[in-house]
Design a protein around this nucleic acid. Sequence first.
DNA 1: GGAATAACCTGGATGC
DNA 2: TGCATCCAGGTTATTC
Length: 305
Amino acid sequence: MPELPEVEVVRAGLAPAVTGARVLGVEAHDVRALTRHPGTAADFEARLGGRTIVGTARRGKFLWMPLSDTASGAGPECIMVHLGMSGQMLLRAPGAPAERHERVRISIEHPDHGELAIVFADQRTFGSLAIDALIPTLDRQPGGYGDATPLVPQQAAHIARDPLDPAFDDALFRRRVAGKGSAIKRVLLDQTVVSGIGNIYADEALWAARVHPETPARDLSSRALNRLLAEVRAVLAKALAEGGTSFDAQYVNVNGEAGYFAHSLNAYGRHGEPCPRCGRMLIRVSFANRSSHYCPFCQRASRQR
DNA sequence: GGAATAACCTGGATGC
DNA sequence: TGCATCCAGGTTATTC
């Protein structure tokens, strides 16, 4: 499932191929891939045609590609992308056969690389593209990773910065967590508190920090919270270095290749196997319409203070 | 206002 | 072999 490392791999893969490229044409095959777009599919196609992609940026799981200004003088805009659970952004040669679950194809011409196709494919149709307005960030810091401009898509403005963002505010994160009575795992998954973390990396970071997923957030000591934040960063960075987590064909980079981090998972999906730390059995429990995987021995709720 | 829950969606895995 | 059911989970609207 695309979480921060997977989205960053996609962004980094797109950047050299799309920055400076002009949009030659757009084919929206499935309107479900445009649920975030405020207009029709025809409007999406018309507003994108002829524009130049001037960069790539990412905040948490949101990815965007700023566009050149329009002749009409409308404010700055971007192509906003959310991969949802199964979205893929693929780079293909012009005229390449349609991908399975292909929803949108954007044909571009790059001054150095020539013609290419950006293909958005999505099996479960939770992902979406949109043309969105770019608005100033409240803290006047760059809107996201990969672009120094202090602008962020309107639809991603409510999302907190992610832990790998240089402008991430550790103190603000601690204050927000300390004010929550919910389970710490639920707080980690709350994109308005900290972005980029999904079910996989939440389980991995909690395991690494020895924190029980159902510990009330406000019960965590400063020490435990600092340890957890450090482990979140470590897990995300390691996954990023290994190209992200792929269990099946659900996540691939822009060339259709899988990542390797699934081999490094310690807790997620390993229920019934021995804990790599203590050797006791890892378990899986139902949690907030999800599954939680943890070690009931070395992640005890009573050990947080 | 904060917190919890359901719904959206598809295809692979599983059970009968 | 074929059909029905379950499960995966990011985001958001709805409900409490």
